[in-house]
Design a protein around this nucleic acid. Structure first.
Length: 887
RNA sequence: GCGUUCUUAGCUCAGUUGGUUAGAGCGCCACGUUGACAUCGUGGAGGUCGGCAGUUCGAAUCUGCCAGAACGCACCA
């Protein structure tokens, strides 16, 4: 073949070439057939998002899993797609419109949706293109978007179905209000952060007195405007005199009752609690209980409403400042203390959440979540690592109802139609026509017309659509053929932070609508952090652009860098050095192949073969190492220890194949031609290595695979057969013998290094060994790797005077170094070894001298200690013997 | 506050049911280049396994307490 091989590996051209090739030949496309399926659905990124390091990690792992499965003979299907990310996308569109001078409120719903779709079409799918750069072997023909027509239909049908089953209801509750996005949020979308705030002590005058006051403590003085009671503990003797009295809210002079409830902690603050039922969940409960008035003093955007009487239109935080100074001026501010408390912030907009009483739609979770809890706890669905089962259980056992309505336009509009102002004056239906029919029936008013119906303005939480993902990507609510084949899927790869948002809910939907788990395994990735331990994020600006990294190190290098230090569930402190290591590995592989290629003879045809030379220990050893690695990698994949699997492959290629096998396969003289059969075997082994490497580094492995031989499209590496472990190659005796030879070589290198003897200097080498025959039969290995003048191996070889020595197992190695030897150094070397063994024996003897150890430990363990003692003492004796020569 | 998981070499991590004077990669130090690769090779130095008790013949591994970290849940204004 003798193709021209570039001296340096150039990832970018290679990667684009093979990715196009794979797509062209539809190697990633799957249709149901007789094979067993292996399915992964991608965690859909935001449609207008761009690739960040978390995506790189997550999708690399998925690609490794799916490529391995594809090669292992499964019908592998990795379904890609995006979600519509209601809040995030709407916020982006609103901002863009604002920049153009357009206010959302000036647009109709339809006009806004047109802008939103335009935005989506313009920015949508960028991230999918970026995934291709990474090498993701998705079935792109299956690309799904959560707002596709069919997908949307399944979301709406699910809502209707759950409503009809009584699992969805509409209700007024305290919700988490995002004053920036102007929408309700679910509990999961609120992040509590500890903040340095202040505790303000404010005095309220007791009604009907001139100078009697009570003092409350609050962190939110602006809510004073909405106070409708003061609450004290009935057992608090300090305030018995206040029972039945009233107090006056400062600034607005509203008279409010003083109520009694043992909810109030007498120890905290002053023991007097101001009650604002419209703006605090606990206050709201108190309000219900005591029949208090609820005064909502805040507009949706966080400004003070008319109900606040003063500060109207001011932002809540500006109003707070003014209220404090006004309170101070009027002498009602008693004191201010520093105080640490936790404040909820919106996950998306990062503004402080406003607890707010609001009419919203809810999913009743308790019953729905039962099978989802049970089947994770009993390992029907396996979490990797399993520690996350605890977190999951805790959440599921205390699951609260899910607020699914959002006051946004971008998303799936709630299919509820209102015909009146009453709380129950609505119907839920798939279309206006159906709604009308239902409404007529419900009201008994046959004259009701379409104009009398008004559809709910709100949309559904994005997660209410993505929880159907494993079903709806196969159109599984309407057509059974594909979903029955691909569902349940095999692996889900995602971040632990969306365990509740998404994983738990997909499991719930899976049991509700398929009566089966959506995926067998959930692999939780770690978080990609920077050197300071901070999560990499766009807002912090501490994340490299993955595409820059791919350009610099190649996708293979980046993939390997991400995987190499990432055990499942553990965070990854990212360092570009890891990618550099990946690209160095690429170059190493490249040059190993380049070496073979340079030794191919023009016009000769080579046939890669694994029919090794049975008389060659090195061939047998290398095959044993390959098969040991196949076995180990297989086990690692079963346990989702991908980094362990990669390390094994890395070491096999670099340490075993490059450092030893290739060195020993080289012709004796540089000018000698490479033996054809040897070349065939080396290429055959290289093929095995590329197969094992492919899931991790798909591009360079395919490139070399295609260099090794001309391949038809269906013979591409990505669809070739995964190597199968064969015990007949896994000969431990060969491995042991080779390891001893490696030990000898290593000892000779060590002697040279410490004695300052050049690698080219020819040595006289003698060995005393019990396995002299085996070693003599393979002495060519030693003479090939070391400059050796003469080699004598026997069972009764005597140590020459003035020689440096080493022990390899029980065997003794001597190198006479007359004239070259540094006696002091040699004595030092031997003494170092003596010290080591003496320390070792001390421990062993200690154990054996302990009667209870000998009595209680298993026989095999005791026997092992005795062997250690015997071997150690023998070594010691030999070393002391050697030392005598120098004294 | 409650719960979970962690703490092993300078860094990032392995260490399977307690039984090899604790392993890897990177980094560090020394030496090395008539060609596969300096994006390399060879050799070397680094750890009383967070602390203290305990169980055991024997603990990095099991138990308890303490210190520190991360995550989850709840939350008193």
């Amino acid at each position: 073949m003798n193709k021209e091989i570039p001296a340096q590996y150039n990832p970018s051209t290679v990667e684009d070439k093979w990715y196009s090739y794979w797509l062209e030949h539809k190697h990633f496309h799957s249709t149901p057939d007789d094979r067993e399926p292996f399915t992964i659905v991608i965690p859909p990124p935001n449609v207008t998002g761009v690739l960040h390091m978390g995506h790189v990690l997550n999708n690399t792992i998925q690609d490794v899993l799916i490529r391995k499965a594809r090669m292992s003979g499964f019908n592998a299907c990795w379904v890609p797609g995006t979600d519509h990310a209601s809040i995030a996308t709407e916020a982006k569109v609103v901002r863009k419109l604002r920049e153009e001078g357009i206010k959302k409120r000036d647009l109709t719903r339809n006009e806004f949706m047109e802008h939103a779709w335009e935005w989506t079409h313009k920015h949508g799918g960028i991230i999918l293109k970026q995934l291709k750069k990474l090498g993701a072997s998705c079935d792109w023909e299956r690309t799904t978007f959560t707002m596709d027509d069919k997908y949307s239909e399944s979301v709406i049908d699910t809502f209707i179905d759950l409503f009809n089953k009584g699992k969805i209801y509409r209700g007024a509750r305290m919700i988490n209000w995002d004053p920036a996005a102007l929408t309700a949020l679910s509990d999961e979308e609120v992040i509590y952060k500890e903040v340095d705030s202040k505790l303000y002590y404010v005095r309220y005058q007791i009604s009907g007195t001139e100078d009697e006051y009570l003092t409350i403590a609050t962190t939110r003085p602006e809510t004073i405007l909405g106070d409708t009671a003061i609450c004290i503990n009935p057992n608090d003797t300090r305030y018995t005199h206040l029972h039945g009295k009233k107090a006056v809210v400062p600034l607005i002079e509203r008279e409010i009752p003083i109520i009694l409830d043992d909810y109030v902690d007498m120890e905290f603050g002053t023991g007097c609690l101001k009650v604002t039922p419209a703006h605090d969940e606990n206050d709201n409960i108190l309000g219900e209980k005591h029949g208090l008035e609820t005064i909502d003093i805040m507009n949706p955007d966080g400004t003070i409403s008319e109900a606040g009487q003063r500060y109207i239109g001011q932002d809540r935080f500006d109003a707070r400042k003014d209220i404090i100074s006004d309170l101070e001026e009027s002498g009602n501010l008693v004191k201010i203390e520093d105080y640490k408390n936790k404040v909820g912030y919106s996950e998306r907009t990062d503004v402080a959440i406003e607890p707010r009483l609001s009419l919203q739609w809810w999913v009743s979770m308790k019953e729905l979540s039962e099978p989802a809890l049970e089947n994770v706890m009993n390992d029907t669905i396996r979490f990797h690592p399993p520690k996350f089962k605890n977190t999951y259980r805790h959440w599921m056992e205390n699951v609260r109802d899910w607020c699914i309505s959002r006051q946004l336009w971008w998303g799936h509009r709630i299919p509820a139609y209102y015909y009146g102002e009453g709380e129950h004056d609505f119907v839920v239906a798939k279309s206006l026509e159906e709604a009308l029919e239902l409404a007529r029936k419900k009201t008994g008013n046959a004259d009701l017309s379409a104009d009398d119906l008004k559809q709910d303005e709100d949309v559904l939480d994005t997660w209410f659509s993505s929880w159907l993902w494993p079903i709806s990507v196969f159109d599984g609510f309407y057509i059974k053929e594909e979903v029955d084949y691909y569902y349940p899927t095999n692996d889900l790869v995602t971040a632990p932070e969306i365990m509740f948002f998404w994983v738990a809910r997909m499991i719930i939907a899976g049991y509700e609508y398929r009566d089966e788990f959506p995926f067998r395994n959930v692999y939780y990735t770690g978080i990609v952090r920077d050197k300071l331990g901070r999560k990499m994020s766009k807002s912090l600006g501490n994340s490299p652009d993955p595409l820059d990294l791919i350009e610099q190190y190649g996708a293979d290098g980046v993939r390997m860098g991400m995987l190499f230090a990432t055990p499942a569930g553990n965070d990854l402190p990212f360092d570009v050095k890891l990618c550099e290591q990946g690209s160095k590995f690429s170059n190493k592989i490249w040059n190993a192949f380049r070496f073979l290629s340079m030794n191919m003879i023009d016009g000769e045809t080579y046939t890669p073969s694994t029919e090794i030379d049975e008389n060659n220990l090195v061939d047998r050893w290398m095959m044993a190492r390959i098969h040991q690695t196949i076995k180990g990698v297989e086990e690692d994949f079963k346990g989702y220890r991908l980094n362990d699997a990669l390390k094994k492959v890395y070491s096999l290629i670099w340490d075993d194949f490059c450092d030893w096998y290739i060195e020993l396969a080289k012709p004796d003289n540089y000018s000698d031609p490479f033996d054809k059969q040897k070349m065939n075997v080396a290429l055959g082994m290289f093929e095995q290595l590329m197969k094992l490497l492919h899931p991790f580094m798909p591009f360079i492995s395919e490139e070399i695979w295609q260099y090794i031989n001309d391949r038809k499209p269906e013979e591409a590496l990505c669809v070739s057969d995964w190597p199968v472990y064969d015990a007949k190659y896994d000969n431990q005796e060969d491995v042991d013998l080779f390891v001893e030879i490696q030990g000898i070589v290593s000892s000779l290198r060590n002697i040279r290094a410490e004695m300052g003897v050049s690698p080219k200097e020819e040595l006289e080498v003698l060995m005393k060994s019990d396995r002299a025959d085996s070693l003599n039969a393979n002495s060519w290995i030693l003479t090939k790797l070391q400059s050796i003048r003469s080699l004598t191996i026997g069972s009764d070889v005597q140590k020459p005077k003035a020689s440096s020595s080493a022990l390899i197992g029980k065997d003794e190695l001597y190198v006479p170094l007359e004239g070259l030897i540094d006696v002091e150094k040699e004595i030092e070397r031997i003494n170092k070894e003596i010290n080591r063994i003496e320390g070792f024996l001390k421990g062993v003897n200690g154990k054996l001298a302990n009667a209870s150890f000998v009595q209680n430990a298993p026989d095999a363990v005791v026997e092992n200690e005795r062997n250690k003692k015997r071997d150690g003492e023998a070594k010691l004796e030999k070393l002391r013997e050697q030392l005598k020569d120098f004294k």
